[in-house]
């Protein structure tokens, strides 16, 4: 009990939950860049449980609902929030935003706004890891919606065929936008598909983060040793698809039931039951996290907009000429004669 990882897992989940709540707040305050903000509230155990099984040097891709994963991998919430606000001090200087956040330093090969778009990159990262004998695993995180995309199956097939150090993590929050999983597939036992490709595959209930961490560790260790893996984490998307979606396509009773599957609350209860932390300890921790995340909003709001001149930067490598702006070209063309 003394060496329990649960306090840390709880703290990481609380940081994800609070960060996401602050993202919602940023939007309400009109300080976010747009409304395409997909919160992972209810899915914290998937992000935190799987990331707990990852090691330094591992790489990963995420999806449009990927804030929590990146945070669980060690992201700086200030730079994340600034990126979500479209500010220059964000991870991608305000060019990527919520759905295209990335950080090569932490092995984050990028969030993706194309459903399934980031999945095949881990096959390539797996090839690199093997070629370089780095011992790294590359993990693709995606939602249940991506199980409708062919690219997932192409990628799983390659990973299995070549025995790559790759893991596929499907965060099954039951919804692809407004379509429930049973309205999108005849067989919702998603791990069975991965088994058919020859991957080590499991589904785990996301209610208990320790269960997720245990399953992820077993599969990830296997992937590192050359048995690529698939893990589906069952959870429930507490809120709408994006910030403006009030979920009119699902009943309130269903939402009430779904929100009972709360991994943060569950971990809290377990910590108290096991005598690892007291209610007061937990409240104090939550308050510290709240303060940290309040600070991320302040950081984002205070951040500068990107410079206009940055608009033509990074289309190509800095050694290359930047594309010619329309006005510059027109001035040149119309100055003739």
């Amino acid at each position: 009990m003394k060496n329990s990882t649960l306090p840390k897992l709880y703290e990481d989940m609380r940081r994800v939950r609070t960060f996401e709540e602050r993202v919602g707040e940023l939007f309400v305050r009109g300080q976010s860049a747009g409304s395409m903000l997909h919160l992972s509230i209810g899915e914290e155990s998937a992000a935190v449980g799987v990331c707990a099984a990852m090691q330094d040097g591992d790489t990963f891709t995420t999806h449009h609902r990927g804030h929590g994963i990146f945070l669980a991998r060690g992201a700086d919430p200030n730079r994340m929030m600034a990126e979500i606000a479209g500010k220059d001090c964000g991870y991608c200087h305000g060019k990527g935003g919520s759905m295209h956040i990335a950080d090569m330093g932490l092995g984050h090969l990028g969030a993706n706004a194309i459903v399934g778009g980031g999945i095949p990159a881990v096959v390539g990262a797996g090839l690199s890891a093997r070629h370089q004998k780095s011992g790294a695993v590359s993990v693709a995180f995606f939602g249940d919606g991506a199980t409708g995309q062919g690219i997932l199956y192409e990628s799983m097939n390659m990973a299995a065929l070549w025995k790559l150090p790759v893991m596929f993590v499907c965060i099954n929050n039951q919804y692809g936008m407004g379509t429930r999983i049973d309205q999108a597939t005849a067989n919702p036992n998603l791990h069975e598909r991965a088994e058919a490709f020859g991957l080590a595959a499991r589904t785990v209930d996301g209610l208990d983060v320790e269960d997720v961490a245990e399953a992820a560790t077993e599969l990830m260790d296997g992937a590192r040793a050359g048995t690529p893996a698939f893990l589906a984490v069952d959870c429930y998307r507490f809120y709408g698809h994006a910030r403006k979606d009030k979920s009119p396509y699902r009943a309130e009773a269903e939402e009430d039931e779904g929100r009972k599957k709360d991994p943060v609350l569950r971990a809290r209860e377990k910590l108290i039951e096991a005598g690892l932390m007291t209610e007061a300890d937990l409240d104090a921790l939550d308050a510290t996290v709240a303060k940290e995340m309040d600070g991320s909003i302040d950081f984002a709001v205070a951040g500068e907009e990107p410079q206009m001149a940055s608009m033509f930067r990074d289309v190509y490598d800095p050694s290359q000429p930047e594309p010619e702006p329309v006005r510059v070209r027109l001035d040149r063309v119309l100055a003739q004669g």
Binding site: T59, T61, M104, L109, I119, P120, A121, V122, V123, G124, A125, G126, L127, S128, A129, H131, Q132, S138, G150, I151, E154, S155, N157, M158, L161
Partner: peptide, 18 residues
């Protein structure tokens, strides 16, 4: 395999990792 999308996608990931 005959998987053009994943061939290119894997190349993207490989290029990003060295």
């Amino acid at each position: 395999p005959i998987s053009e999308a994943a061939i290119v996608g894997a190349a993207v990931g490989a290029a990003m990792t060295g």
